[in-house]
Simulated scan of single mutants.
Amino acid sequence: MKLSAPVYRLKRNARVLSRREKIPLHQALDAIAAIEGFPSWSLLAAKHEATTPAEKLFTRLAPGDLVLVGARPGHGKTLMSLALAVQAMKAGHRAMFFTLEYTEKDVLDRFSTIGFDPADFNRLFEIDRSDTISAEHMIARLADAPSGTLAVVDYLQILDQKRETPELMVQVRMLQGFARAKGLIFVFISQIDRSYDPAMKSCPDLTDIRLPNALDLTLFSKTCFLNNGEVRFQAAA
């Protein structure tokens, strides 16, 4: 049976219904399931909730990993990175989103898009929008973070924009050493060079990363590239 909307959107509809009708969320979920022709939400979920790409990728991550998530604008790299943060929080870990691009509302809206509410995670999620975001700043903010914490950096190239900060290679090496020492995971959202042509290859790769200055891309232990719904994972050799 085909659903009228994706599962994440049905979940969001259930939350709206729960608030509007002042009923428990599980009742609202069952009501939405009934509209879709299922006797309960659990049966709907069992039939339609396949493992997501973020769930698959998260199972391949380990403390100390530096993950590169790359795509052209509008192809889901921010949503994928936030979905990885959700998976970390589901596992009981903390997550932090460092950004100079998004407002707090922007980030929370994107959580809604993937069908999750940060309020569900009991203060496990933080957003840092400091004007001084750099490797040094992130290391200071995460100094007391427990092993397994996942930090999203929005985005890789923004670390290279201020003259007073070390060059990008130095900053990424700093974060690599810090991640390994503390058992953290860093997810770097990355821009793709405008020369990338989807007609030539269906998904970008490391050769398409936009790099204004030199960076050893072997510093990243995992990569994830997206384009038009295609998702490609790769672990370092």
Rank of each mutant, 00 (worst) to 15 (best):
H93T: 10
D144G: 11
R129D: 11
G64K: 01
N122E: 14
M89E: 03
G148K: 08
K105F: 02
E101T: 07
T99L: 05
F125G: 06
K90W: 04
S112P: 03
L108I: 15
M138D: 10
A85I: 05
D120I: 10
D65L: 05
D131Q: 11
G115L: 09
A71D: 01
A135Q: 10
L124D: 13
E55S: 12
K56C: 02
P146I: 12
F116I: 14
G76C: 12
G76Y: 04
R94L: 14
V69E: 03
R60H: 04
F111A: 08
M89R: 13
F58P: 02
S134L: 10
A140G: 07
D65I: 12
A143Q: 12
K105M: 10
G115I: 15
M96F: 12
E101M: 07
D131C: 08
G115N: 09
R94D: 13
R72N: 13
T78D: 00
L82G: 02
P53F: 05
D106H: 13
F97E: 11
Q87W: 03
A135C: 06
E136T: 14
F125I: 12
H93D: 11
S130F: 11
V67M: 00
Y102E: 15
M80H: 04
R141W: 04
T132V: 11
M96Y: 12
A140C: 10
K105N: 07
R123K: 15
Q87A: 06
L100Q: 10
L108T: 14
L66E: 00
P146M: 11
L79P: 02
A88S: 12
I114P: 01
H93G: 08
I139F: 01
R94V: 09
T103H: 05
A88I: 06
R94T: 11
P73G: 05
L150Y: 00
A91D: 06
D65P: 08
G76D: 07
G148H: 04
K105V: 14
G148D: 05
D131V: 13
A85W: 01
L84H: 01
L68Q: 00
H75I: 06
K77Y: 01
A85E: 02
